Amino acid sequence: MIYSDKTIDLINAAEDLAYSLSQSETGQAYRLAKQARANSRQAQDVIRDFNRIKEEYELVQRFGRYHPDYQTITKKVHEIKRALDLQEEVAQFKKAEKQLETLLGQVSLVLAGQVSPQIKVPTGNPFFDQGCAGGCSTGGSCSCSG
C-alpha cells in the first residue's frame, strides 16, 4: 500500500486520539484499577481459585449432569464467582473496565457516524444499540432504516 499524506495524517490523528483516550480520566482510572487488582494479594488469590475451579467445571461440563461431581463443582463455581465479584479490587476494576468500554463505544459511534449513518457499530451496550444508534443488527425488524 502506498501511503499518501492524507493517510499519514489520518494515522497520526488516530494515534493522538488513542493517546487522549489513554490519558483521559476514564483511561487513567482503568489503569489504576488494573494495577490495584494486580497488586492485591487477596484479589490474586481469589482469581487463582476461580481459574482452578473453572478448569474443573469445564472438565465436568463435558458430561453435564451425568458427571458425579456436577452438583459439587457447579456450587463451587457459583460460590467462588460471587467471592470474585465481591472482592474490592476486582469489583473496582470491572467498574472501570465497563466505563472505558462505554467511552470506546461512544467514540466508535461518532467515528462511524461521520463516515456513514448506515455503518453498524457493535458496542455491546443496549443503551447505544437501541433505536438503531449505529448498533442495530436486526436487519430492519426494529423498524429502523438500516
Rank of each mutant, 00 (worst) to 15 (best):
A83I: 09
Y66M: 13
G124Y: 09
L109G: 09
C132P: 10
T123H: 03
L103C: 08
Q71F: 07
A38Q: 14
N39C: 09
S108I: 03
E79W: 01
A36M: 06
S143W: 09
Y30L: 14
T74E: 10
E55I: 05
L111E: 04
K75N: 07
S24H: 12
S108G: 11
C144S: 11
I8C: 06
R41W: 06
F128C: 08
R48D: 10
Q44Y: 06
Y70G: 02
A13G: 01
A38M: 07
Q28Y: 03
T102M: 10
F93T: 04
S108N: 13
V77M: 15
Q35L: 08
S141Y: 11
E58T: 06
A14P: 02
G139F: 05
H67R: 03
C136R: 02
I73M: 05
L104D: 07
S4M: 01
D5W: 05
K34M: 09
G146T: 06
I8G: 05
N39P: 03
I2R: 07
G140R: 02
A18R: 12
P126T: 11
R62L: 11
N12G: 05
I47G: 01
Y57W: 15
Q28C: 07
T74G: 11
M1A: 12
E97S: 10
T26Y: 00
A91R: 13
A33C: 00
A96I: 01
V115G: 04
D85A: 03
F93Y: 15
E88G: 11
G139D: 03
A18P: 05
Q61N: 08
Q130S: 13
I47P: 00
K76P: 03
A133M: 14
M1S: 14
Y57S: 08
R48K: 13
I8A: 01
K75Q: 10
C142L: 06
I53H: 00
N51H: 08
G131V: 08
H67I: 03
V110I: 13
S116H: 09
S4H: 05
A29R: 11
I47V: 15
G124I: 14
K6T: 09
K54L: 13
S145C: 12
A18E: 15
D85T: 00
S145E: 11
S116N: 14
T102V: 05
L32I: 11
P126S: 04
Q28T: 09
P117M: 05
D129W: 10
Q23K: 13
Y30K: 07
Q92S: 15
D85V: 00
K95G: 03
Q61Y: 02
M1F: 09
T102N: 15
Q44T: 01
D45C: 04
T74I: 07
Y57G: 04
I73F: 00
P122E: 08
L10K: 12
S141H: 11
R52H: 12
G139R: 06
E101L: 10
E79Y: 03
L109N: 06
V77G: 04
D49L: 15
I2A: 05
R65A: 12
A13I: 04
S24M: 04
Q87D: 15
H78E: 15
F127I: 12
E58D: 13
A33Y: 00
A13D: 14
Y70N: 14
Y3T: 07
Q61G: 00
Q61W: 05
D85I: 00
R31E: 15
I2D: 15
N51T: 06
